[in-house]
Design a protein around this nucleic acid. Structure first.
Lengths: 274, 274
DNA sequence: TTGCTCCTCACGTCACGTGAGGTGGC
DNA sequence: TTGCTCCTCACGTCACGTGAGGTGGC
């Protein structure tokens, strides 16, 4: 039998505010040990303190309340640790991204705004091993990493010839609505399919292309410059953005050396006129 | 004269969703260049792209929309850079805290739960140089750093004798409501006052004390253990928590060596009975 | 009886997202 | 005419905080 304390005392012991404790009761994250039926007073056993502190820590790391609940109700320690480890990994990645964003902001605020070289080109239809899925912007990076690894692995395994750079098709809805269909593809000499990988013919398209140099975190600048260029020449037309990964993290050690070709769909007359 | 594009195209160029762009229009953060009076269609000049991208970056760093607005309307570059630098500093600190929280979580999930040694004691009334202010939990750390530096500086300057450890009084409201009065004080031999620093007599009190070892980030565990101990002996009584900073970051290089004495107010009968 | 702590609504906040229902331009 | 893009409400979400108005225990 352990001691019961009021919500105010429990707040002191756990450094969770009274409002927060009541909220956690409402959503079922942390139930008081006893609730007085007539007064509605909440009473907490002192042995709930470690649980409350774990909750506080996890919330401090921005783990969603639902996930915290999963951690608390995990049946065994292994499962619980796995959930926490997964969240820590996410946190580390987000730290990484923040650092990149800070570095990039410094670049943006710097003196020079690079000019971009744009070239228009007709991309021919291409046979490829491809993965197409609806992806949200938030999940894009890990999705990309998984999908590209899968494509490369399968193609290597089947022995089909690779006939071009790894590429992607990004539906405008991805940016406009935050979620949309994305195709990642690896051009091949022969049909290759397995699981979610299908053989596809990437359609031909007229595009204005430029090469983005450096970290993918800064690709928005190139999107902006390319879009502005295309608009200035009055030739934008709806269709997916095309990317080709000329130099990837697998190829170079330094982020500065990454090269990504961005293709913005344009009118065929624009290509001919050029 | 620069080109106007629709919201959809502008979304592509800036990687901001259409909903987000409309929201930024509503709150006045990013106004379209032209709004068609009959259709309500928004049109954006392409030279707004860098501004939109700056917004996106700053929001990515969780800078509040209001602060982003301040950055955009800053009259000169110096002011703008200062605002951004201030936010970057905040971010760095929060990264630091997250890292500490992760480390601490690992400790909590580890095998051993230390036991704490509790002793009860009557703290005598003490003459001190003191700063008392209403502080919110979020601001506590920087407030503490400023206040302690100010106290030490003034006391050194006046040549008054220091007669005890730097200490603090934390009103329960600070934890229960997230904001409350806090007193930081340095015991002195002679009256010392200047600016927000006043001479005060810290009242006597009966407290159960224990020493928290290690990073202040982990102090909640000690609060919990001490509170549970006091409750188990049925002697808790309302009043501010007292802390005394025995070994601070100024004294030791390693966080593990930090020592903070925590005092929990108890009944005088409890002290006598001990 | 006076304070103090606790209670329950109802609503606000922040930064958008969702979804219904409808309109304009090629 | 058909799609597609755009529009405006109104409401939802997440994790609480704010504030009014009221009750219970020493």
């Amino acid at each position: 039998m352990t001691d019961l304390v009021t919500i105010g005392e429990f707040s002191l012991m756990t450094q969770l505010s009274v409002k927060t404790l009541r909220h956690y009761h409402d959503v079922g994250l942390l139930e008081p040990t006893r609730v007085d039926p007539s007064s509605g007073y909440r009473f907490y056993a002192t042995d709930l303190v470690p649980t409350a502190q774990l909750i506080r820590r996890l919330r401090h790391l921005d783990m969603p309340v639902g996930d915290v609940h999963s951690v608390l109700t995990a049946t065994d320690a292994l499962e619980r640790d796995a959930l926490i480890a997964a969240h820590l990994t996410k946190m580390e990645q987000s730290l990484q991204q923040t650092r990149a964003a800070v570095a990039d902001l410094r670049v943006m605020l710097g003196p020079t705004q690079e000019r971009i070289a744009v070239e228009t080109r007709r991309m021919p239809a291409t046979l490829a091993a491809a993965i197409t899925e609806a992806v949200s912007v938030g999940d894009l990076l890990p999705w990309w990493e998984d999908a590209s690894a899968e494509l490369r692995a399968l193609v290597r395994q089947t022995g089909a010839g690779v006939t071009g750079f790894l590429g992607g098709l990004y539906d405008p809805a991805l940016y406009a609505e935050g979620i949309g269909p994305v195709t990642l593809f690896l051009p091949v000499s022969d049909p290759v399919a397995s699981g979610r990988i299908e053989t596809a013919t990437i359609p031909a398209a007229d595009v204005a292309v430029t090469v983005h140099r450096g970290s993918y975190a800064g690709v928005d600048r190139t999107y902006g410059a390319l879009g502005a260029y295309v608009t200035a020449h009055g030739s934008s037309r709806p269709g997916p953005i095309r990317e080709a990964y000329l130099l990837t993290p697998d190829d170079v050690a330094d982020e500065q050396q990454l090269r990504t070709e961005i293709g913005w769909p344009v009118d065929s007359t624009f290509v001919a006129a050029e």
